[in-house]
Design a protein around this nucleic acid. Structure first.
Lengths: 328, 328
DNA sequence: GCCGTTGTATAGAGCGCTCTACTATTTACT
DNA sequence: AGTAAATAGTAGAGCGCTCTATACAACGGC
């Protein structure tokens, strides 16, 4: 007969199935005596409520879904951790799917969640346009952790990238640096905002922003650094698009015998595990990624409760000072 | 009326619900004409099969679950990626849950999967004993990626840790090293096997194994390295329990002015992102983590198909040589 | 013209729950 | 004592599917 059902428990406890159902859902409308009796029977039979049946009957899943672009990227996993914490506090289950860095993967992952009919979805995505998001938002409550142009159909939570750049420029100029270069990451998510923030902060201070093409990886940092150091007047500080790129910069500087931070200061962005390593010790911009997850989940729960007006939150990063930056 | 149901599609297409069901399940017992008609109606109404109802009625979920100890650890995410690939090939959905590094979290994560009644479970766990695994295996087909003592109740896939250590010792002795130290990680998962492999390989070559207490983190590597270098005859090569610990070693050696690999060679374990960074460039032991995922999923599918005899696979790692090791 | 096939389609009984409406029993309050 | 209100429990109709058993053509063989 396979797994025991609610009817089995009811029969064993000598009560109705409805009562067992109430007990399982922690209803207050059950006497202590019955509750104990039912729980004892359930326990004895090894009863485990059938989620499929429950969700079918109730039309709810008590579950929220998170779609992550890439499980290998700590950005997304920390995001997920924040979501998990907030979901647990609200008594909700969490289902995670990943797009494995591919756009088709993200589609499939979202499709899986929509099929599961989770009560809502948190999108930690990067690969596609606002329209796709919109389509999802049409079908279920949705919160995106990404910086779109404040769409009406869903809530968003994102990092104030430009402000992060401002913090970096502020830190470096206070250390006396004036020739500061930024290695950007083209149009990758977040990169344009970081670049814009850098350029504005520099010109606000009457300084000429130096920007070199780059990407969010180590190699880009290495080759951009090589080009920068070949300039007639090389910069005294380099602000990379992210920590990985900064690591590339560091690697190149060491290879040409430049001392960090004595000759050149380096700043990263993201405050990943890398930045904290003793062997690297990068000054970097910390984003409260777990907080992104928390806030997005809180917003999602509000939506599930019925709010319809879109909310958009901008979260402030902070600078973490380590030993890759020093006075000029 | 919310989402359209199968009945709506049936009515719209002028056929029975049973026929729609057959079409949705790609049954060959449907004429082309009917199939097209049904598909058109479904599409027009925006019909999406209700997974809950389907699973309830069919008693299957066509889904496998993966429980990961920690989403931040690349070991587990690459494992998951392998599982995802194999699951996709078999036409199965994938559900991921995480224990967030806590034992209670792992319990909850497993509970979620059991409640979901996935067709099978892959356990990428680290925090608890074989008995807990056994209990899970009693309830559903299970494969663990971990090195237990070949339990009867489930399949296992694991890395041949000892062999990895052997590769390291072989590499270092061929470079002429004889005073080789290992910084271990106590009883953390995999650590005892790595230590044992190291000790055996050393004594096989008539060399005295030096083993210092450590852990799987950076700090442990730093302090163990400090102690090692204070010895009257410091080792000429240090084999750390993992890459993170090796990073700590590197950091300490640099701080005391020792050159790597000229003065001291360093070897890590795991071949994480860290090891490949230009600024670190660690020789390390690579484990085919995705393969672990693939194989475990394949074994799981066999179990779901009905195999009951336990299978246990040991997968061979290989050495990746970078610039942290050199001749003595 | 009858029978057995083969190919399509349908009816209808569940799957294991939830939830509304209802009954039965106490307790509370004039 | 008599009624209202609160408390505890139950019956039974779904939820949206799957799947077995069955119906009904259309066809070929004799």
């Amino acid at each position: 007969m396979g797994q025991p059902t609610m009817d089995d428990v009811a029969a064993h406890a000598g009560v109705s199935r409805a009562l067992v159902s109430l007990v399982m859902r922690d209803s207050p409308r059950v006497s202590d005596r019955s509750r104990k009796k039912v729980l004892a029977s359930a326990n004895e039979l090894g009863y485990r409520p059938n989620v499929w049946a429950r969700n079918l009957a109730s039309g709810q899943t008590n579950t929220i879904g998170v779609m992550l672009n890439d499980l290998h990227n700590p950005y997304f996993t920390e995001l997920a951790e924040g979501v998990a914490a907030a979901a647990a506090e609200a008594g909700m289950e969490l289902l995670i799917t990943s797009g494995w860095q591919r756009e088709s993967g993200e589609h499939a992952a979202i499709e899986t969640l929509l099929n599961m009919r989770t009560d809502g979805i948190v999108l930690g995505a990067a690969r596609f346009s606002g329209e796709v998001f919109d389509e999802v938002a049409q079908q279920t409550p949705t919160v995106a952790v990404a910086n779109f142009d404040e769409p009406e159909s869903m809530d968003t939570v994102c990092n104030d990238e430009a402000h992060g750049s401002e913090l970096v420029v502020d830190h470096l100029t206070k250390l006396g640096h004036t020739r500061i270069a930024h290695i950007d990451a083209g149009n990758a998510p977040g990169a344009p905002e970081r670049r814009r923030g850098f350029m504005n902060s520099m010109s606000d201070r009457g300084l000429a922003p130096i920007v070199f093409d780059g990407d969010f990886n180590e190699h880009a940092g290495m080759s951009a650094a090589a080009n920068l150091m070949k300039l007639k007047e090389p910069p005294t500080a380099i602000f990379a698009a992210n920590d990985l790129s900064a690591t590339g910069v560091l690697s190149h500087l060491r290879s040409i015998g430049a001392r960090v931070p004595d000759d050149v200061s380096i700043v990263g962005y993201d405050d990943t595990l890398l930045a904290g390593l003793g062997a690297l010790s990068l000054t970097t911009v910390h984003q409260p990624r777990q907080l992104f997850g928390r806030r997005s989940t809180e917003l999602l729960l509000e939506r599930i409760e019925g709010r319809t007006a879109a909310k958009h939150e901008l979260i402030q990063p902070r600078l973490v000072t380590r030993s890759s930056t020093g006075p000029n």
